[in-house]
């Protein structure tokens, strides 16, 4: 039975790689078509492509030393904002999920209020609210405002994922743990969450990718992330098309790398499960 399932798994993996390959081909075809469309379109517009001016905004070469250009500086800020927000949003999401599943009415109510408020208002409004209203009151700067807004916003979605993962674990697991005398905290920590997290890794990854994309919005409160740096350069140089293409490519590279990484991780976890 065991060897059979292993064989099956191999077949599945084969098809998986196969279909990934086809997906990449399709993807390249679409990109190619788009490039062709845009280049023929811009020709009609009389757009003057100046790609050669772009590299210096990515890296600099001074006194024989390689340095980061403004876009890379922006990328680092994007990494910082997204990285911290990612951790915070998962923490907030997990706590909100536990509150929603708790026996305490007050905790459940609190979690519901949080979720409804956050999911029914735009991220931009939350960002402005935290920066312009809470910011002066609590004395928090742009960067922290950006991180807080993103974490609180994405946390609401992460909490739904955590909740779904937790309630997908069979009741028998709780009962076995309780019958052994484990406390609810130990049961969550050692039995329920380790199993739930394996199951929710794919949606959590999508959530992380959304977060990185949504982080572009922090440029509206003048946090100098990748998007903001791009806007500044464009306003000075009018390299509109070149820079937006470059910025999109950088975002794409990050998110694709992230999903590949998690896919890899997931395969390894599944073997253990």
């Amino acid at each position: 039975m065991n060897s059979l399932s292993q064989k099956k798994r191999k077949t599945i993996r084969f098809f998986h790689i196969h279909s990934t390959f086809i997906d990449i081909l399709k993807y390249l075809a679409v990109i190619f078509a788009m490039v062709w469309l845009i280049s023929s379109g811009t020709q009609k517009l009389g757009y003057n492509w100046q790609w050669y001016r772009v590299p210096k905004y990515i890296y600099t070469f001074k006194d024989g030393r390689l340095g980061a250009g403004p876009l890379i500086h922006g990328l680092m800020v994007t990494f910082q904002v997204s990285g911290i927000s990612l951790l915070l949003s998962f923490a907030i999401g997990l706590i909100a999920a536990l509150f929603r599943l708790s026996d305490s009415l007050a905790a459940r109510l609190l979690a519901r209020c949080y979720l409804e408020t956050i999911r029914n208002t735009p991220l931009m409004v939350q960002l402005f609210f935290i920066y312009f209203v809470l910011g002066p009151v609590l004395d928090i700067d742009r960067f922290l405002s950006a991180v807080l807004a993103l974490s609180i916003f994405e946390g609401a979605y992460a909490s739904e994922i955590f909740r779904a993962g937790i309630i997908s674990i069979q009741k028998g697991q709780w009962e076995a743990a309780y019958s052994l005398g484990l406390s609810p905290v130990d049961t969550y920590r050692r039995i329920i969450l380790p199993q739930a997290i394996r199951r929710i890794l794919p949606p959590l990854t999508s959530q992380g990718i959304s977060l990185i994309k949504d982080s572009a919005l922090v440029s509206i409160i003048a946090v100098y992330d990748l998007t903001m740096q791009g806007q500044v350069i464009i306003s000075e140089t009018f390299l509109t098309f070149e820079l937006w293409f470059t910025i999109a490519a950088i975002y794409l590279a990050i998110t694709v790398t992230l999903s590949v990484l998690v896919n890899f991780l997931e395969d390894h976890l599944r073997v253990l499960g």
Partner: peptide, 13 residues
């Protein structure tokens, strides 16, 4: 008090 269940309920991970 120990308990044994019909569905075993071992911890799969």
């Amino acid at each position: 008090v120990g308990m044994v269940f019909q569905q075993f309920n071992l911890f799969p991970h």
